[in-house]
Design a protein around this nucleic acid. Structure first.
Ligand SMILES: [Zn+2]
Ligand SMILES: [Zn+2]
Ligand SMILES: [Zn+2]
Ligand SMILES: [Zn+2]
Lengths: 152, 152
DNA sequence: ACATGTTCAGAATGTTCA
DNA sequence: TGAACATTCTGAACATGT
C-alpha cells in the first residue's frame, strides 16, 4: 500500500484511488471483487459509474476522475477562474449529490483529492487555437488538396 | 505559458528511456524467456509483444517500433497533421497504457524516442496512388468497357 | 503473417442556456 | 449550476497488397 502523498491519477494508482480520506467516504472501494487478484486494468474496467466526488451518477472520466457532469463543470469553472472558496463550516463537509452546491470549498477539495487535475483543462490559448483550426477548416475547407494543419 | 509546477502525480515522474536506433530496434531482450529450447530464431517469435511507448500489448512493428494499435494510430494521426503538443507538466511524463491519452506531447516524444519514423507513413499521394491501382485492378480485371464505377 | 491504411462507435474536451 | 449538445481524439476491428 502506498502513501498517497499526492493527488493520484487514476492511471497511476495501482490499487489506490480509494479515497484519500478513508474516514467515511464509502465511495468506490476496489470492491474486493473476488478472490482473484484484480490488476489495475480490471480495476478500471470495473470502475463503478459513480461520481467519486458527490456520489451522483458518473458519465465517465473527467480530468482524470470518474465524475458526474456537475462536478466536471464545477471543477473546470472553479479552476479556470482560480476560485478560492472558504468552507462556512469546519472544512470537512461530506459531499453528496444533494448538498454539493452548499460548500464549494469542500467540493473542490474533494475533486482534487479524487485526482482531478487542472492541468488537463485546456488553456485559453489551446481552446482558441482549436477554434481557429475549425474555422480555417470550414473556410478553406476545400476538401482534398492540402490538408495542411499548419498552425505555425 | 503554464505554471511549471503541478501536482506531483507519479505519471509525470522522470523515467529513463531505452533509446533505440532505427537500425537496431530489436534490442529489447526477452530475458531468456525460458530455459527450454529457445534457439536464436525463437527470438523473433518470442519478441516481447509489449508496446515500447506505453507498455500496452503490442500488435507488431509499426513505423519501425514495436507498438500497440493505439500508439500506432496516434503516431500516424499526429505526424500527418504535423501536430505540435505542449506538455502541461514538466515534459517528462512517463507514459503508460492508462495515462497515454493525458499527455500527447510526451507520448509523441516517446514514440520518436522509441524509433518510430514518420517517413514510413504513406503520403496522401502514395495512398491515392494505391487506391487507384486497386480500382484499376478491379475495373480492368475482366473484360474492358466497364464504366468507372467508384464502388467502395 | 506482416505492416500499411480505413472505419466508426465511444471517450473526453469545451459550450450553451434555462 | 448542470443536462444537453458539438467537436475532436482514440483505438479495436477490419481491408488490402507484399
Ligand atoms: Zn459529482
Ligand atoms: Zn465545507
Ligand atoms: Zn502503446
Ligand atoms: Zn507530458
Amino acid at each position: 500500500m502506498r502513501t498517497p502523498t499526492h493527488s493520484p491519477c487514476h492511471c497511476c494508482t495501482e490499487e489506490l484511488l480509494t479515497p484519500v480520506d478513508p474516514t467515511e467516504h464509502r465511495v468506490m472501494e476496489p470492491m474486493a471483487v473476488s478472490t482473484s487478484v484484480v490488476g489495475p486494468d480490471e480495476f478500471d474496467r470495473n470502475m463503478p459509474r459513480i461520481c467519486g466526488v458527490c456520489g451522483d451518477k458518473a458519465t465517465g472520466f473527467h480530468f482524470n476522475a470518474m465524475t458526474c457532469e456537475g462536478c466536471k463543470g464545477f471543477f473546470r469553472r472553479s479552476m479556470k477562474r482560480k476560485a478560492s472558496f472558504t468552507c462556512p463550516f469546519n472544512g470537512s463537509c461530506s459531499i453528496t449529490k444533494d448538498n454539493r452546491r452548499h460548500c464549494q470549498a469542500c467540493r473542490l477539495k474533494r475533486c482534487v483529492d479524487m485526482g482531478m487535475m487542472k492541468e488537463f483543462i485546456l488553456t485559453d490559448e489551446e481552446v482558441q487555437r482549436k477554434k481557429d483550426l475549425i474555422q480555417k477548416r470550414k473556410d478553406g475547407g476545400g476538401s482534398a488538396g492540402g490538408p495542411e494543419t499548419k498552425t505555425e
